[in-house]
């Protein structure tokens, strides 16, 4: 049974036709066994793909193709990397379902343009960061406050090549949720040292990012 209803498909088709500037390659890391959410994640991608000819899919087997995984910095599955003119370091670990589906769509639009909706001030600050920052945003699919937190992280990755950012679906990666003491979502971890609870306003997010980059 399709996940996307006819009217949703139609809406997305029009949205992509209007707003997709350049091609977006969806790089998907999966494996056949021992990955409960790989198949449903693939279904989401396969339903998105025909909605615009600017979208393409590149699928990799996680274990046998570990070189590719290394190249994209992917260390667990299911993983989605969105690449436009280049690999911006925009990743999703776990299924982008529920509220996170909207994050996936908004990210695809940003990656296609290589631009984000940061305010000019925030954008300048993010672009000026000169040290690598790795961002993980823990979410659950039923959390309406999570997409804005993931979006900020992914936008930062798009604006600055030294920043990479991943959505991490907490229920699929419980060992990580446990490791980072996640008991509420969204929870943003920057470079393992800085953490942020909830959906931060842009300004606070950028402040923390600058702190993480020191």
């Amino acid at each position: 049974m399709p996940l996307l209803k006819d009217e949703d498909q139609q809406f997305l088709r029009e949205e992509f036709a209007r707003k997709l500037a350049g091609p977006v390659k969806i790089v998907f890391f999966t494996q056949a066994l021992d990955c409960m959410f790989c198949q449903p994640t693939e279904q989401i991608i396969r339903e998105l793909l025909p909605l615009s000819d600017k979208l393409s899919l590149e699928t990799h087997n996680f274990a046998p193709e570990s070189e590719e995984a290394k190249r994209y910095g992917v260390d667990k599955i299911p993983a989605i990397v969105l690449a436009g003119k280049k690999d911006y370091g925009v990743k999703f670990y776990g299924i982008p379902a529920g509220f996170e589906f909207s994050t996936l769509v908004a990210d695809i639009l940003d990656v296609s343009r290589g631009e984000t909706s940061f305010s000019p001030d925030a954008r300048d600050k993010v672009r000026a960061i000169a040290k690598p920052v790795d961002i993980q945003v823990f979410v659950s699919p039923t959390c309406p406050y999570c997409p804005p937190a993931v979006r900020l992280a992914h936008m930062a990755a798009i604006e600055n090549g030294l920043i990479s950012a991943a959505m991490v679906e907490s229920t699929e990666f419980q060992h990580l949720a446990h490791k980072y003491n996640v008991m509420g979502v969204p929870r943003t971890i920057m470079n393992e040292t800085i953490s942020l609870e909830g959906a931060p306003p842009e300004q606070l997010f950028v402040e923390k990012l600058l702190e993480a980059a020191q």
């Binding site: 309406p144 008991m183 509420g184 909830g198």
Partner: peptide, 17 residues
Amino acid sequence: LLGKGVSYCAVCDGAFF
């Protein structure tokens, strides 16, 4: 303790408990 056991959204955070 926000996000460390204090929550205002059961559907978001219930699964952690």
